[in-house]
Design a binder for these strands. Sequence first.
DNA 1: TGTTGTTAGTTACATTTCAAACTAATACCT
DNA 2: AGGTATTAGTTTGAAATGTAACTAACAACA
Lengths: 143, 143
Amino acid sequence: MSNNDFDLGRFLPYALNQAAEATSIGFQKNYRQRYGMLRTEWRVLFHLGRYGGMTAKTICDRASMHKTKVSRAVSALEKKRYLVRTPQEQDRRHETLALTRQGQAVYADLYQAAKAYDASLSSHFTPEEREVLNRCLEKIASL
Amino acid sequence: MSNNDFDLGRFLPYALNQAAEATSIGFQKNYRQRYGMLRTEWRVLFHLGRYGGMTAKTICDRASMHKTKVSRAVSALEKKRYLVRTPQEQDRRHETLALTRQGQAVYADLYQAAKAYDASLSSHFTPEEREVLNRCLEKIASL
DNA sequence: TGTTGTTAGTTACATTTCAAACTAATACCT
DNA sequence: AGGTATTAGTTTGAAATGTAACTAACAACA
């Protein structure tokens, strides 16, 4: 109950959120104005751009995003003509999502911006710190 | 443009968000049902509980929360009778917020839960890793 | 075939958040 | 004093999110 040994800034749910918010806002500058996209949308775009066509369900699983979030992001990207859907022959419940040429161009641009932004963040850390950070975040996300 | 050296899971805005989401959901179990509170509310409660009475503006600054978020969280906590407002004599725009006895009891409970939850997360890391994690998150949040 | 269950994805409604406009109190400057 | 600018905090309407119910396609099994 002695309270004084507790530092809110070091409480992981708090500290992680502060850091996540800060970087999220930082990265926003690259896609918000230019492409009118939302957080959920660049995430979906990045999955497709980096790892190739896949179904919405797969994105849900990989990104731990709820299916309604993904569904809406996919619709938005489709409306912007950044992706197209193709129902699968053998099971028409699944639709494979794939970036259009325009979507690929947007991904190429944002992917460069992402690398640059990540590098600028990383410049504040030693390679060892950066490695520890990666490992810790990965582990926490998988709990 | 070679794309293959880019791992979405190691892109900080993405990885931080995944980790933050995971811990946020994990900690929710302690306050959501039991006290009907939201993320913004426990944050405000924790600031007041840990660091004593302060004004809404101060919480905004310390927590990088937008003033409308804080305003609503304060109203909600007030309605639950977890805090009271006292306008300051010398400048009646400021109101000092302070937890009621009931609010302090809730804080005492959640603070214990927070320590326990943080300890359970930390158990997956060495003390050195945990130190690096703290430092990195703090630095990122301050950029 | 028909019934029941499961899965991928969408829709609808309620809650939460964001941005901008607003109020009220104080400060500054003439 | 009087006008303008700031500041703390609230309110309002639009956009985003979460939850649950829904549709459509398939599977399993009698």
